[in-house]
Design a protein around this nucleic acid. Structure first.
Lengths: 171, 171
DNA sequence: TATTGTTATACTCTATAACTATA
DNA sequence: TATAGTTATAGAGTATAACAATA
């Protein structure tokens, strides 16, 4: 367990990491925005899968994933074939053209990272990857279902501002 | 220096960290979206400052910062006074009401982080903060100006896709 | 009735460009 | 002429809700 000041600092760093992501996104071609590039990378890494699985891996709503997938399919970078076992589902697969794009984008982003992190050791990069992976896991496990009943962490804590939730939902 | 596979993995983790940020954003009140909350946190941490400095710290365009600031000023959470030394500038300052909001939001996000990272040691959280801070620094130093001429990292590498840049700019 | 995807709609965040007012 | 900030406009990413087809 860490102290409150540390958590606040972590929150600040998380909000600031967006700048790094935007920097990385600038090397993408106009035809393949970041969301689509993420889909390509996951298909390349994990192989063929359904939209739902992809949405799970992206930690994003299926409707969002569907849009990205449509974008890629329109460009011929992925194929949406029907799953014979379940006709509601569609199996996504990288096309050769799609694979070429993934390779090129991977090359570009690796090149940029290599330049920016030229003074990082292999071990340091590995540590950051490991901690970020674990961070995602610590959050991801709680995302979908309503957390284990009766836990509620610290306490009720009546919110002085507003209901509490904030997402396109209650807007 | 690390290997290409490691850079690719880091890129994936960076793109995936958005899910954690969204999770954290869900605890914000509708009246204070993430962008505004970031402004409040920076003013709380660094004290009074000008819009330009804030934009620098946020690593975001000044026009974006200006919007967030307007949002906060309209709610009475910050004050925009004129800088007597330079009448073009405006000094930003948290109001007591603003400080109360910052405190509440910090409390909430710390609470959520404490819950999610309950099995992390103080040291591990510190390591993640340190590495993310360094990551930002490694990128931030290169962002504004055109990098030191004649460096170009790996090589020319003719982009098979499109020009290369991708941002609202060339869209 | 429940699940897989799709589409329509709305909102936040961001950048560029044009503009005002100072320096 | 250059800088600080504002505003208008546009694009990307996301979520919710309503809907289609299939289990």
């Amino acid at each position: 367990m860490a102290e409150q000041a540390q958590y606040e600092e972590l929150a600040r760093q998380l909000s600031a990491v967006g700048a790094v992501k935007r920097d990385l996104a600038r090397i993408l071609p106009a035809s393949c925005p970041a969301g689509s590039a993420a889909v390509l990378a996951l298909l390349d890494r994990h192989g063929d899968m359904r939209i739902g699985q992809l949405a799970e891996l992206l930690a994003v709503d299926m409707s969002v994933t569907s849009r990205h997938v449509t974008h890629l399919a329109e460009r011929g970078w992925i194929e949406r074939s029907c799953d014979p076992a379940d006709k509601r589902s569609r199996i996504l697969r990288l096309t050769p053209a799609g694979r070429a794009v993934v390779d090129e984008l991977s090359r570009r982003s690796s090149e940029l990272l290599a330049e920016r992190l030229s003074d990082w050791t292999d071990d340091e990069v590995g540590q950051l990857i490991g901690l970020m992976t674990r961070l995602r896991a610590s959050f991801g496990d709680h995302r979908p279902g309503p957390r284990p009943v009766g836990v509620r962490a610290t306490g009720p804590a009546p919110p002085p501002l507003e209901p509490t939730t904030r997402t396109p939902a209650n807007t």
